[in-house]
Structures are given as structure tokens and as C-alpha cells.
Nucleic acid binder design. Structure first.
Lengths: 277, 277
DNA sequence: ATCTGTAGTTCCATTATTTGGAATGAAATT
DNA sequence: AATTTCATTCCAAATAATGGAACTACAGAT
């Protein structure tokens, strides 16, 4: 089965602004991180002038900002003076991943779910109106494992994303949906808020979500929401596979397993965090 | 300690080429990233007061700084108000990794090297006096796949690190070594600059480096340097395995293969970058 | 209930950093 | 050689960060 990632990376993170524009300004940091985003979202290395045209800042200002980012290792310059994302980010991220408690708690359950179903299992957290994949367990180890982890996908057309959205209260949900731009990745992608909301209502009743080729043709999944105790964090777990193998019956059959895995993760989180402190 | 640089010390502490110096002139960003580092390096979530005791800043200042970092997603707060590394970093890092040209060019060669030797192959880049692992190809291991990617290890006691150091000119090398703190990870770890320098001289002559349980007991490797065209970036490739399986003979036997892989990667980089623009 | 200590948050005049227009370099292109 | 494009440096003015202190919240002890 072809990986669910690689070629699409440039596209899927493009359209939507991952998090609704907060009224708050973070001053200097916000401006700098916006630059990092520009460089991260670009298809390749960017020249000074490329960035200048995207950011509405004067030359002198931009130049110093980029210099600072490079000095801190958040960006790098290649020998042609073009800007790239720096590897310091990789280092920071690997730490954040290795020490992420939620991920560590979930891992055995993901593995178990993978063994039960034989298909790929994903763990993703909701961030704004995107899902960021925190972990992935595949059957036969294919190589491009890391490529999926850390990837962002739109919440409205992925199983994990819709499952997580379904756990939001109406107000919050409405806010995030308002920030969406519905982009037709496949013939089955929801085209508007009404269709998405109808789907989410069903998901709330059922307790689990389906994605039948909504994000990528030929890829289906069933997913269940994971609610954090404090409600601050929402996540989801899913079983994903190619449509020719993962039939509707299979999805139905796996749904209780996925829900059970999600519940186990929630329970473990509560148990681990409760007595700890 | 035999002075390779006694008289140069004054010079290279001033030299601004290597970024090993923490002479931060990045203003606000530098202070903020130092906080991110503190949180990233901690063993677990940190309370406000914990960070306060590490950073020498007033309460009010620190509070606002942390707020900004959280708002930008570089940090997160858990339900107890403790600070963690944010997943936005994971997302940025996955992009930097997926689009890293060097990694992409090297990958097939790493895979080939893995097949030839049957052991684990690493690709790492030198950053200051640390090595950050960019990629890893394992034989059949199922679990710890990306635990290594993005990790930083000291350059002076890893194969990849020593190989990369050996490609530096004397001045730069002296500067980075001056910044080192020799920590005895194992019985075989170099304890001082003299021993390390002697090793590096040998590596320069041979063209490849050994690590015989210098960083981790029971783990050996052979590594070769990868010099970037512009000299700005240095990297290394290595074959690593457990000492009981990876004997000295094996290391010797693999050395030419590792060097050949490194050379192929260099060639490919030149060919890809040259005509491209 | 009150006191006391610890942890976290907010406020605002002062201070230091960032800003941005314009001038200067440095390369390509004509 | 002249022109255009791109990148870098400078410095007065604008703005954002600073830090001391006052304030809230909560826990445990008296």
C-alpha cells in the first residue's frame, strides 16, 4: 500500500490556516514564527526576496529577523543564500515526541489495535482545525515511518479529525468550522459546513467516525475520539487501510475495537495522571 | 595537555564562523529559545517556578515570555499549569525532514549500505559540537524506529561525530573542541582534548572513524565524513551494531563500504545541486 | 475561621529592542 | 561600462520588552 503522505505534503497543509487567527499578538515572536511558517510551507528553499514578497515588512527589518532565526537554528541558509527550515527543530521535536506522555500511554494500545486488525493505526491530536499525527503503527514495517509523524491534515476530511471534532461542544465546533476552507481532495470530500455537521452529528450518536476516501482516494478508515480530562486536548485513534481490503463491513466490525482502544487510552491517562501528583 | 592551540585560543574565541559559541546576539528570540531549550531538556513538565529558578529573569518577564511561547504553540501547558514542548514543533520538524534535500539524496545510499552490512546505518549532521541524526535505516527492528531521528549526541564520542570533526580545518576544530566538556559515558570515552585530537589525526589519515564503545557500552561503529560543497555543512554516515556481532574485523571490512557510501552521497549532492539552478 | 507560605498572574512607568527608510555593496544581465 | 536585481548595513524614531511590586488563589497549619 502506498504511503498516505509524501507527494501530498505540499498541498494539504497549504489551504487552511491551522488555527483560527487569535486576536492576541505575541509581539516579536509572532512575527518571527510567521516567517518560519512561510519557509516551512514553501516547496523549496526561499530567497530573501521571495520571503520579502510574502511578508509585508521592510527589507531591513526582514533581514535582521531572518538573521536572528538563522542564528538560533530555526532556519538555515544554503550556499546560495536561500532559506530552509533548520535541523534544530528536528532535534527539539524528537525530544518533544520521545517525552510526550500521551503518546507513551497510547502506544501499547495502538500496537494492540494494529495486531487485532492488521491494518495501520494512527494517533492524532487536534490543533485548530488540523490534525497532527503523533504516532503510527504499521504491520510490516515500511520505511517511511517518520514521514507521517508530525504531519498535519485537515480535520474535516480525516477520520481522526472528524472524531476529534465530534467531541467539541457546539460553540467551539462552530468556531473551528468557520475557519475552514472546504477543499475537494476527492469526490467524497465534504464540500460545505452543512454536510460536515450532519456527519458529525452521526458520529456523536455512533461514537466513532468513518472516512471513506474523503481525504485520499482509495483510503478508508474508522476512528474514535479521545477526550482529555480537562477538555483542553482532543485526539483520535484510527485504523486505516486501502479500500479494496478495508470494506464497509470491516470498518463496522472494527469500530468497537477502535472505540475500546480510545477508551483504554483515556482510562490510562486518567490513572497515570491522577495519582502522579 | 599538548597545546595544539594555546596561542590561538584568543583568536578563535572571537571567531564567529562556528556557531558553537553561545554568544547570543539574537535579542528577544534568543531569550525565548533558551526557555524552549530548558523545557525541552527537562525530564518532564516544568512548573513556572522550576523554569524561574533556571532562568535568571524576573517573574513578570518570564511569565509573559512563556505566555507568548504557548500562544505560538512552541510550548504547551498541561492541566496542572506545567509547561511542555508543543506539538507545533513536531509539525514543523516533519516538514523540515521530509523536504530535506540532503536526506533525500542520501537515503538510497543508506539503504544500500544497510543491505551490504546487515547492520543499522545512521546519517548525522554536525551542529556545533553535537551530531544530530537525520536518518536511520535498520534491518528488521520493529519498535524504535524514529527514536533516533532528531536525536543529538556529542560529536567527540560518536563515529559520525568524529568523522565529521575530522573534516574540519584546524582552526574550526580547535574552536569546537574548546567548547567541549568531556564526559565519560563509558570506559572508552575520550577524557580530554589530546586523546580526541590524536584520534582525529588518525581518522584524517585513514579517511574513516571508529567508535568502539565510546558512547554506549556494547555498541561499536565505523563512520565516514561527508563534506558539503560549500563547506558550511558537515555530516557523516555510519554502520553501527552490538559489539558481540560487530567485531574489529567487521569494522575494518566495512570501512571501505562506508567511505564509498559517503562519497556517493557527496557526488550525488554535487550533481543534483550543480545543474539544478 | 484565620494566618502563613507558596505558586501564579497582572499592572505600568522605564528601558532596551525592534523598526523601516535610505544608502551601500555585490552580482548578475544588458 | 551601464543597468538591473538582489542582499546587507546604518541609525533616529517607534514600539515592544522589562522588572519591581501589588494582587489573586490555594494549601496547610494554628
Amino acid at each position: 500500500m502506498p504511503a498516505i503522505n509524501e507527494g501530498r505534503m505540499g498541498l494539504n497543509s497549504d489551504g487552511e490556516k491551522g488555527d483560527s487567527r487569535r486576536g492576541r499578538e505575541t509581539g516579536t515572536l509572532g512575527k518571527l514564527m510567521a516567517l518560519v511558517d512561510h519557509v516551512a510551507l514553501a516547496d523549496g528553499p526561499m530567497r530573501f526576496t521571495d520571503i520579502l514578497s510574502l511578508s509585508d515588512q521592510p527589507r531591513g527589518t526582514l533581514h535582521r529577523q531572518l538573521s536572528h532565526l538563522v542564528e538560533e537554528g530555526l532556519l538555515e541558509v544554503d550556499r546560495d543564500g536561500r532559506y530552509l527550515i533548520g535541523i534544530r527543530l528536528l532535534n527539539l521535536a524528537s525530544r518533544s515526541w520521545a517525552r510526550n506522555e500521551f503518546r507513551a500511554v497510547a502506544e501499547p494500545h495502538l500496537r494492540h489495535l494494529q495486531e487485532l486488525t492488521g491494518e495501520t493505526v494512527h494517533l492524532g491530536v487536534l490543533r485548530g482545525s488540523e490534525v497532527i499525527y503523533l504516532d503510527k503503527v504499521e504491520g510490516r514495517q515500511s520505511v517511511r515511518m517518520y514521514s507521517q509523524i508530525g504531519n498535519a491534515s485537515p480535520a474535516y476530511c480525516t477520520g481522526v479529525g472528524k472524531a476529534a471534532l465530534s467531541a467539541l461542544d457546539d460553540l467551539d465546533l462552530a468556531g473551528r468550522i468557520a475557519a475552514l476552507e472546504f477543499r475537494p481532495y476527492t469526490q467524497h470530500t465534504h464540500r460545505n459546513a452543512a454536510r460536515l455537521l450532519a456527519d458529525i452529528v452521526e458520529i456523536r450518536v455512533r461514537g466513532y467516525a468513518f472516512d471513506r476516501e474523503e481525504h485520499e482516494s482509495g483510503i478508508c478508515c474508522v476512528a474514535a475520539p479521545i477526550r482529555a480530562d480537562d477538555g483542553g486536548m482532543l485526539a483520535g485513534v484510527s485504523v486505516t487501510g486501502p479500500a479494496y481490503r478495508v470494506t464497509s463491513q470491516k470498518l463496522q466490525q472494527w469500530a468497537p475495537l477502535v472505540v475500546a482502544a480510545a477508551d483504554s487510552i483515556m482510562t490510562d491517562m486518567r490513572n497515570r495522571l491522577g495519582p502522579k501528583r
